[in-house]
Each structure stands twice: as structure tokens, then as C-alpha cells.
């Protein structure tokens, strides 16, 4: 794979995908740092991984962990969670339309 060339526009695009607003000087710094880091991780391409399955978790347990699909209820949980909102009684979201 060819070396990845970072650019200001690519940094802005990644920032937008991540919901970050960047100051112009931040973009410049990140462009430089991202390029360094990406060039470093590029060395993964050297490893021969033909026929090797990806390992996502350290232990691959055959037995399923999934519990029964049963509702669990804690009578206080709802009020505990709602208390975390700004008014202490719920959450506000901005208009989306």
C-alpha cells in the first residue's frame, strides 16, 4: 500500500466525522502528527498475515456468554439516570428539524 499523504482537508474531514471543531492552527499540528503516526503504523504491512484469522478478543470462548433475553428491572434506576440531566428530571436535546 502506498504511503498515506495527510492533508489539511483530510484532517478536516476526519474531524468532521468525529464531531470535532478544530482551530486552523490545530489542523496544521494534527496534519503533521497524523502523518508521523500513520507512517509508523504502516509497518504492519510488512507482516505476512496470509491465512491468519483476525483476533478481536484475547480469549475465544466457544460457549456463548449471552444471557437469557429477560427484562431486568431496578425500580430506582430510571430516577437515578434522569437525575443526571441538567434539570435533575430529564435530558434536553437540541431541535433536529
Amino acid at each position: 500500500m502506498a504511503m498515506i499523504k495527510m492533508s489539511e482537508s483530510l484532517v478536516r474531514k476526519i474531524a468532521q466525522l468525529s464531531h470535532f471543531q478544530l482551530a486552523p492552527e490545530e489542523v496544521k499540528v494534527l496534519e503533521n502528527q497524523f502523518e508521523k503516526i500513520l507512517n509508523y503504523i504502516e509497518k504492519l504491512q510488512e507482516v505476512d498475515v496470509n491465512g491468519v484469522e483476525p483476533l478481536y478478543y484475547p480469549h475465544e470462548v466457544i460457549e456463548s456468554y449471552l444471557r437469557e433475553d429477560q427484562a431486568f428491572s431496578d425500580p430506582n434506576l430510571v430516577s437515578k439516570l434522569l437525575k443526571l440531566g441538567p434539570s435533575g428530571t430529564g435530558f434536553k436535546v437540541p431541535p433536529i428539524l
Binding site: 500500500m1 498515506i4 503504523i41 504492519l44 504491512q45 507482516v47 498475515v49 491468519v52 484469522e53 483476525p54 483476533l55 478481536y56 484475547p58
Partner: peptide
């Protein structure tokens, strides 16, 4: 565009390390 080259590959290398 990059998940095969990076994430999936890193997970394959992870198995080799294990």
C-alpha cells in the same frame, strides 16, 4: 477505505503475537 489495511490487519498481527 482503510479498515482492511489497518484494523483488520492489526487484528491478524495480534493473533500472531498471541
Amino acid at each position: 477505505e482503510y479498515s482492511q489495511a489497518f484494523f483488520e490487519r492489526a487484528c491478524r498481527v495480534r493473533r500472531k503475537i498471541k
